[in-house]
Design a protein around this nucleic acid. Structure first.
Lengths: 64, 64
DNA sequence: AAAAAATGTAAATAAAACTTGACTTTTGTA
DNA sequence: TACAAAAGTCAAGTTTTATTTACATTTTTT
């Protein structure tokens, strides 16, 4: 699963810490998702997509 | 998290078992998601949305 | 160069998706 | 009515994995 999180976050001038607080997870969780260590839960994916005003499919690309 | 899984599945004339095999989970998992006992994982959500040719947001409605 | 801020990562925990198996109920149909 | 297929349920267990904690490294700023 790929994602565009890093680009979108930096484009908004936010740190991983900033994003973590808004979404309601730890800073390390944001980092792990950006580095594509694992996928977010569905609720977390929804929050992220809403924040960046796009669909989950636009934010995360599932290859499978 | 609400979803339209049941309607879409029956509209295609599929049983829970049919859907389970296509997605790659157990029949009870499909049933539990239809009955909104828990949310699917993000990969499972992707597979479902693709099968029914719609976005995850159209298939699942997050109230948060 | 030094301090601070931001990011990276391993290890452990916690949570939740998912399975198995058994049983009941509903629905259709012969 | 009787049978079978599909759906519902529920407990209990497994397993995956999202998430956290703690510590290390890199980058940025002064």
């Amino acid at each position: 699963m790929k994602n565009r999180l890093r680009d979108l976050r930096t484009a908004k001038g936010m740190t991983q810490e900033d994003l973590a607080e808004i979404i309601g997870v730890s800073r390390q969780t944001i980092n792990a998702i950006e580095k594509e260590k694992f996928d977010p839960s569905l609720p977390t994916a929804f929050k992220m997509a809403k924040l960046f005003e796009m669909t989950i499919e636009e934010l995360f690309q599932f290859e499978g």
